[in-house]
Amino acid sequence: MSVEHAGAAAPHEHGRVPGERHAVGYDEETRARLTADAQEIIARYPQARSALLPMLHLVQSEDGYVSPRGIAFCATTLGISTAEVSAVATFYTQYKRHPNGTYTVGVCTNTLCAVMGGDAIWEELSEHLGIGHDETTEDGAVTLERIECNAACDYAPVMMVNWEFFDNQTPASAVEVVDRLVEGAPVAPTRGASSVCTFKEMSRVLAGFPDGRADEGVGAGPATVRGTVLARERGWTAPSFDADERTTATGATHGEPDAGEAQSSAERPETTPADVSPAGEQRKQKSDDAKES
């Protein structure tokens, strides 16, 4: 069977671990090394299957993406099916299902970054590199991503390279960064480690294997801690509430229903299909359970 089909789900066979028949692709030396790393990961958890997320990063650090043979390895090692592994691998965006570039460049285009110029940065990089979202340059150097949020609004607009911060970017500065990446020149993020590592190297860090660089660079700049500084200067502290006296946003205390809550179920309109969101359905189920009890 070819590696391309190694990740396909297969019926369970009596006496065999799900996914075992697909455990092909890695040579003996590589498999032994990955197995040793996997056992170290598994030892961190009370149940082996809980190790799946870091193990996906582990195989990604080997192949540059979550490959069919990587999926088969995870399934065999954890005693679960390849379908279960694939379901997780396709849910999270940090797991790539096709070969990734040496550097993943993520441009935030969420609200604040967009207002500050994130869309302009994205358009400039996409045109400059000749690729779109989740596409890779022909030389394999850069994969470009449009990111919903880089969790660094205090330095918008922000770009990340293999999840290292590049703050306060402009279209010109972003192009300069990717050009240096393509050239193979060293690139230093504005915060964090003193240089950008490769996608495979970062994947291994995310698998839980430290690279010894946690203390490099600046973790939080002045904008990040501005609120804390102001609070200390002005003597601000968080309010303390007695649990029984804490009030809601409407001014009603816990245990005292507001006008809407006081309305009986008989007076409330029937729920229409459009009202049934997952959260609404969960609330409805809890209400029905309470009535039955």
Results as ranks from 00 to 15, higher is better:
E176Y: 02
D289F: 00
T247I: 15
T248G: 13
A214P: 05
C197G: 08
V175L: 06
S264A: 10
G251H: 03
D289I: 03
T250W: 07
P269G: 03
E245P: 09
G227R: 11
G255D: 08
T228W: 11
P239N: 08
A274P: 05
E233Q: 12
D289M: 04
L230G: 04
F199D: 11
E267V: 13
F209A: 12
D215A: 10
G219Q: 12
R283E: 13
R191K: 04
T224E: 07
E183G: 02
H254I: 15
A262C: 11
D288T: 04
R232K: 12
E270K: 12
G255Q: 06
Q169F: 09
A223H: 05
E233W: 06
T250I: 10
R246Q: 07
W236I: 10
D288K: 06
A266E: 14
A243C: 03
G280M: 05
T190L: 06
A220S: 02
D244E: 10
C197L: 03
G219S: 11
D244Y: 00
T271E: 03
A207S: 14
A262E: 12
S195P: 01
G251F: 03
P239H: 05
S240P: 03
T247E: 15
A193P: 03
S195K: 00
M202L: 11
A238T: 15
A223F: 01
T224V: 09
V178T: 15
A214N: 09
T271R: 07
A266H: 11
G251P: 05
K200W: 02
V276H: 05
L181R: 07
G255L: 07
A262M: 11
T247Y: 13
E216W: 00
P278N: 04
A262Y: 00
K284E: 10
G212Q: 06
A220L: 00
S240G: 07
E183A: 14
E245D: 15
F209D: 11
E256R: 15
V196A: 01
S264D: 07
A249D: 08
A231T: 05
G235Q: 13
L230W: 07
P210H: 14
D242H: 09
P278E: 02
G184W: 03
E216N: 00
S265C: 10
P273T: 14
S194F: 01
V178H: 10
V178K: 10
P222G: 04
M202V: 06
S287Q: 00
T170I: 09
S195Q: 01
R268A: 11
H254Y: 14
A262F: 00
E201Q: 13
M202D: 06
T190W: 04
V175C: 08
Q263L: 09
A252P: 01
V182P: 04
R232N: 07
K200P: 07
E233L: 13
R234M: 14
R232Q: 12
D288I: 03
S194I: 02
E233T: 10
G184M: 03
D288N: 02
R283S: 13
